[in-house]
Design a protein around this nucleic acid. Sequence first.
DNA 1: AACGGCGTTGCTCATATGAGCAAGACGACC
DNA 2: GGTCGTCTTGCTCATATGAGCAACGCCGTT
Lengths: 316, 316
Amino acid sequence: MIEIDEMLSIRAAELYYEENKTQDEIGSILRLTRWKVGRLLAQAKANGFIRIEIVHPRARRLGMERRLVEATRLTDAIVVSTAGIQGDDELQARTAQAAADYLAGLRPVPRTLGISWGRTLHEVSLHLRAGWASGVNVVQINGGVSLNRRAGTAANTAVTIAEKASGTATLLPSPAILERLETKQAIAADRAVAAVLEMAAGASAYLFSAGQADENSALVDSGYLTAGQIADLVDKGAVGDVVGRYIDATGRIVDPELDQRTIGIDHDQLRKATRAIAVIAGPNKHAIARAVVTSGLCTTLVTDEDTARALLGPGE
Amino acid sequence: MIEIDEMLSIRAAELYYEENKTQDEIGSILRLTRWKVGRLLAQAKANGFIRIEIVHPRARRLGMERRLVEATRLTDAIVVSTAGIQGDDELQARTAQAAADYLAGLRPVPRTLGISWGRTLHEVSLHLRAGWASGVNVVQINGGVSLNRRAGTAANTAVTIAEKASGTATLLPSPAILERLETKQAIAADRAVAAVLEMAAGASAYLFSAGQADENSALVDSGYLTAGQIADLVDKGAVGDVVGRYIDATGRIVDPELDQRTIGIDHDQLRKATRAIAVIAGPNKHAIARAVVTSGLCTTLVTDEDTARALLGPGE
DNA sequence: AACGGCGTTGCTCATATGAGCAAGACGACC
DNA sequence: GGTCGTCTTGCTCATATGAGCAACGCCGTT
């Protein structure tokens, strides 16, 4: 009976969803009562034979968002749909757009917004609508491109976000990682730097991304780390970095010595924040996303469907 | 307005299709009347943002079948869904299953069924349900594997189909293509062969597949043609073969001399048949499928969604 | 053969939804 | 400013659909 009904339920589903027939009409075609047809359709749905997708760049997966919030200690999750997606760029764009939308919808509007830098954050800045807020002070939370390199994307990201909110940008005038601990301590103690770090520590919300631990990292491109150093970090269990600090799958700093030489707010400060928004998407960021979420580094995660599925574990 | 409404319609669709909320509930969430919500959903559908797929090996695309019948001179079309398909094998299996189902459902049940041979037809024979009919005489319509080669798939296909219908199989004891015209004429005139050809010509239905014109053809494997010969045929415009005879995109025999040396019923006989069922599926068979359909070689086409889409032309 | 459990069937009724329409809003043009 | 035409809105009403229930049939057990 199960076999026969399965075929029937497929025939019914074809007529119902493709041909837009009423259950009654289907009944007379298949020589069934309309109630039987209704039950067959319910069965087809329950068996997962009916797949409904919303194909749109702004489409989200509310069910997954809810399940993520339930299954983790996130207070909020934004999951963009991957339906009908073409390349990796499109995934990035969709995620960045969703992050921008979320940021623009934040209430209360953050007075001070701490941000990291990188490809993802930059993209978010581009997707923000001008006038998304009025008067937000955007402050960098980790060191990066040197001051004299004009129009570095890091600075650009902060400035763009601030401009679009008719606010001000406060840049962190410091490298990301120093070679000697003493230099780092000296820089961090410098008035100009210390003031920014203090402001960063007091931000009312944070927005940051995370990098996968591999040789394509922005930290390697910028010359702060070598591919060899990354390999060492991976050996020690590193899955990726958040604001320039590498963590393992449990969220622990993998190399405390290196961490000491890194400029910017530390992970404990992020963990204490009321609003820490992580934007992490893409097939190679599943591990770091999991580390960030499980170790409580963010309160909000903006991600894609596939990553969310990986976080929720199998069977989802 | 269009912009705003588009976003709203996506939000509404998420709540409706993913969260199973009623339009009324969605209305109070989005601060809209339930009629507005209904209109937004209709709009989302009309814009193609809602994609509903039936994910099942036996699922068909009734809409495409209808459009195919309207757009061509087919009397019947069976289009299997490619939703959720994994490999090429699965596509073959689905199509073969659909062909088997169609054959089993044919009314009136054919007294004599003419069949070709090949991978596709063999697969169809395997998917047929034992007892699909009672007492069908299955007759081969084109030459193939020699008699003395035991358990050739060609013979096997015919026998399996016949057995499952408690009928008899009549094999065509002849090669597919002869090297010399005289030999072909002699064989065709032979009592044993002529009798089978006559029976084939009088079949009440035909079931056959088609091959793409390339070096992987079964005719090359069997040694009837060389890769070089195929290349020549392609140069002359060949897109594929039906019952061993190569045609161009308009359905014309590309090499009459070769055709003369080919054993089996010819295309004119197929075109005169009341029931000629072609089973042609797969990404590389679009061209030959089009040639078969437009030149009226079959009355029924069993194919896959992608091939059907190619037949219907762009915008579909 | 009688009984009782279990799944299936066909129903009633409440609800959700779509069609169609009148009123209103808006903009263009006189 | 008035007026017309068009698009949008909120409605009424008919229809489609799902929930829940009683009757039924099918089996296995007593």
